[in-house]
Write a protein that binds this DNA or RNA. Structure first.
Length: 215
DNA sequence: TTCAGGATGCGC
DNA sequence: CGCATCCTGAAA
């Protein structure tokens, strides 16, 4: 990797000052472009004065209109899914059993696609993350969608936040490059009910990362 | 490997 | 009301 890119990588909390939130244009791309390009980006939260960030190493696409695994399959609108139908770049946060999950909305108005963030490598605020989610190993802070939400402090309070302007949660690019040859595309997790859509390879992860949820 | 936990949505 | 779910940790 070129030296310049290494220097751009986020090393400390102070470096966040020069890390800008990804712009609207990122989220208006095709959903699979968003899925591919979000790998290696930072998911940042700033809550009650505590900044935490993790590098996204695993994510999945949910294609609202056609995807039987999507909460907005066939355009289904409920209070929960409403934000999916707005413009891309907003936070879709939902609960499964006792855990939260974080997605970002992609595409323009009335396209209800989302990308679910499934795993992060902790980068900034690891002490804060461990306070929120007491575990022995840093690896256990972000190797699952519910785990990373707990560590980053993501709750439904952040539902609908605009990730391009929010002071509390956003995505950022610190110059890290996830190489094509290091990315695995495979079936999504936990959607056995989705009939033919359970076989779609809409889960991407960084193969040499020890922080993915499962291989 | 099984099972509880408990918000959301849906069908009765 | 009953049942299922884009998950996780504890128990066996």
């Amino acid at each position: 990797m070129p030296k310049k890119e290494i220097e751009l990588r986020l090393q400390s909390k102070e470096d966040l000052d020069r890390i800008q939130a990804l712009p609207r244009g990122f989220y208006l791309q095709d959903t699979f472009a968003c899925l591919r390009q979000c790998l290696g980006k930072l998911l940042v939260t700033n809550l009650e004065g505590e900044v935490t960030a993790g590098r996204i190493v695993e994510a999945e696409a949910y294609i609202g209109g056609i995807d039987k695994a999507s909460h907005s399959y066939k355009g289904k609108r409920t209070p929960r899914t409403e934000i999916q139908f707005g413009v891309g770049g907003h936070a879709y946060i939902f609960q499964v059993h006792t855990h939260q999950q974080f997605c970002f909305v992609t595409g323009g108005e009335n396209i209800s696609d989302v990308v679910l963030v499934r795993a992060i490598e902790p980068v900034v605020g690891i002490d804060t993350m461990k306070q929120r989610r007491p575990v022995d190993s840093v690896k256990l802070l972000g190797n699952g969608p519910g785990k990373l939400c707990k560590s980053l402090g993501i709750t439904k309070d952040l539902y609908g936040q605009d990730l391009t302007i929010s002071e509390n949660i956003w995505l950022a690019d610190d110059g890290y490059i996830a190489l094509d040859e290091n990315i695995v595309q495979t079936q999504r997790v936990g959607i056995d009910y989705a009939e033919e859509y359970k076989d779609m390879s809409w889960r991407y992860y960084i193969n040499d990362s020890p922080f993915v949820s499962k291989k």
